[in-house]
Design a protein around this nucleic acid. Structure first.
Lengths: 325, 325
DNA sequence: CGCCGGCGTGCTCATATGAGCAAAGATCGC
DNA sequence: GCGATCTTTGCTCATATGAGCACGCCGGCG
């Protein structure tokens, strides 16, 4: 009975979805009433035999977004489809695009937006359309005078975002991490720097990304840390960095010494924010993403489908942890 | 213009298919009239952004069947879905199941059915339901007294099919291939054998499979040929065997000497048949499948999706050829 | 400058679909 | 074997969707 109905529902589904027949027509083909056909179809859908997928680089996964919001207690979530993604860059780009879209659609429009910097954020800035908002000021929330050839990426991200929104950018004129605590204190108390930090602390919204805890980090690339430093941090439980600060799986600072020498908004400020948007994509960042989400660092997460599913499956309300690649 | 419509159609599709919103609701969400939404949705479908797949072991691919029928000039085609197939056995089994279904649904019911033997056909016989027909007589169309431990498989296939249909089986009491032409002629002229062959030649319908040309062939397994024999046949262009006879890509007999020593229905009889059903699945059999279809050996093909797509793509009206694994 | 043809838009109307309900049938315990 | 209950079936009615059409907008051309 149940067996034959299942088979029938498959036959009906084939005719309905693949041959565009009407339920009535299917009824006469399979010798059933159209109501029976309707029920068969409903059953097929409910049993998950019918898989509908939207294949497009800019497709989102609304049901996943909903689950992500619910299980992780986010105010909003944007999940981009990973189907047909060819490489990591493609994934990054799609996610950044989605973040740009989200930002542009944001209401009310924030007067001041605090942003971090890095490859992801830069990608977002490039995906924003000219005139995406009118008059949004952009402030850097962590230090980032780049020490290497990529100098200026941090600045250009902020400037691009501000320009395209017809607002202006406020850069944080300071390194990300200082070698000595005294130097850090001195820079922090510098009038110019202090003013930016205070502006940053007053931003209406934040947009930031996170880095995986490995040698590929921008902090290593920019020369603030050595691969060995990172390895040591990992040994002590670090899963990645958020606005320049290394956190463990529970979102706690790993090395308070290092953290004390890091310039920028404290994570507590992000946790207290009304609106803070994290943009995190890629398998390498699953662990950080989880730390960010479970420790309440963001209210909105923009990510890829795989990361989202990982978060949904592994959501436990914060404590120590194991993890993936 | 076109760009923004594309994006809109994706958003609409997400809401329609993933969130089960009505077109009207989507209209108010995206600030569009419901007609516009309907058109966007139609556009999304037409552009192929919406992929609907029926995931079920017994799902068929009706659109592929249609294309297969049309491009290859078959009277009918059955294509089983390969999604979620784990191994080759699963694929075989699904295809055999489909063939059994097809056979059971066949109208008019053939009075006499000629069948070959082998792993695939045996699988079909096992998938048939008891009472799948009432009174169908089954006749073997090629020799197959098995020389090895699997003895009886050929016989049991025919007997099972006949029993389940409430008809009776007629076995061909002869080896598949003889070593000497004279022996073959002698056996062929034996009254009992000749009677079966003539019955086979008069069958209303045929059901057969095909083997790939490699050492895994049942003909090798049963001891009729050595792996070296097969290698030599391959060198001479063989792509596989059909009812015990090795054919090349154009469906022509490869080795007339060998063919002369093979007992069973000549391929010409199959080509002339009103209804001959081939059941062929698996990547290893793409080449034979192509030979069978292009040379008109079957009027109906039961196969898997990948093979079907291969046939559709590589359909050229017969001549020499290259080929895949 | 104004006319015409093509296209996109929003409409009317016919059709397809889904919700809810009453009757028929199956299933179980007694 | 019989009745109570629970499921399944085919219906009526409300709603959602698709076809076709008239209108208005735009760009080209006289």
């Amino acid at each position: 009975m149940i067996e034959s109905d299942e088979l029938l529902s498959i036959r009906a589904a084939e005719l309905y979805y693949e041959e565009d027949k009407t339920q009535d027509e299917i009824g006469s083909i399979l010798a059933l009433t159209r109501w029976k056909v309707g029920r068969l179809l409903a059953q097929a859908k409910a049993s998950g035999f019918i898989r509908i997928e939207i294949v497009h680089p800019r497709a989102r996964r609304l049901p996943v977004e909903r689950r992500l919001r619910e299980t992780c207690g986010l105010t909003d979530a944007v999940v981009v489809s990973t189907s047909g993604v060819e490489d990591q860059d493609e994934l990054q780009s799609r996610t950044a695009q989605a973040a740009a879209d989200y930002l542009a659609a944001l209401r009310p429009v924030p007067r001041t937006l605090g942003i971090s910097w890095g490859r992801t954020l830069d990608d977002v800035s490039r995906h924003l359309e000219d005139g995406w908002a009118s008059g949004v000021d952009v402030v850097q929330i962590n230090g980032g005078v780049s020490l290497n050839r990529r100098a200026g990426t941090a600045a250009s991200t902020a400037v691009t975002m501000a320009q395209k929104a017809g607002g202006h950018a406020t850069l944080l004129p300071s390194p990300a991490i200082l070698e000595r605590l005294e130097t850090k204190r001195a820079i922090e108390s510098d009038r110019a720097v202090a003013a930016v930090l205070s502006l940053a602390a007053d931003a209406d919204a934040y947009l930031f990304s996170a880095g995986a805890a490995d040698a590929s980090s921008v902090l290593v690339d920019s020369g603030y840390l050595t691969p060995d430093d990172v390895a040591e941090l990992v040994r002590r439980g670090a899963v990645g960095d958020v606005v320049g600060r290394y956190v463990d799986a529970s979102g706690a600072i790993v090395d308070h010494g290092l953290d004390g020498r890091t310039i920028g908004l404290p994570l507590e400020r992000l946790r207290a924010a009304q609106l803070s948007i994290a943009v995190i994509a890629g398998a390498a960042k699953h662990a950080v993403a989880r730390a960010v989400v479970t420790s309440g660092l963001c209210t909105v997460l923009v990510t890829d489908e795989e990361t989202a599913l990982h978060l949904i499956e592994n959501h436990r309300p914060v404590h120590d942890s194991e993890d993936h690649a």
